[in-house]
């Protein structure tokens, strides 16, 4: 993400809530403040339909973060 942003490409990280701490630690160590959307854990065992429903729920917030500062 740091690499994408440095090239002017907006990015949003999507991860499950289990990775909130990991994202914070990594962002701090690299001195960046990336945009994140955290979704409920877990995702690995979800059916395709469940994943689509999850994506629908978070789609708008992901787009909003991608466009943030450009409107």
């Amino acid at each position: 993400m740091a690499d994408l942003e440095s090239r002017g490409i907006p990015s949003v990280g999507v991860a499950t809530t289990e990775f909130i701490d990991a994202a914070a630690v990594q962002a701090k160590s690299l001195g960046i403040d990336p945009a994140y959307v955290f979704i409920p854990h877990p995702v690995q065992d979800r059916t395709d339909d469940e994943l689509r429903a999850l994506a629908d729920v978070h789609f708008d917030s992901i787009i909003a973060l991608l466009l943030k500062g450009n409107q």
Binding site: F19, D21, A22, V25, Q26, S29
Partner: peptide, 10 residues
């Protein structure tokens, strides 16, 4: 590197 369990080591 600063790689520690329960931090970046998941």
């Amino acid at each position: 590197g600063g790689g520690r369990p329960q931090e970046v080591d998941r």
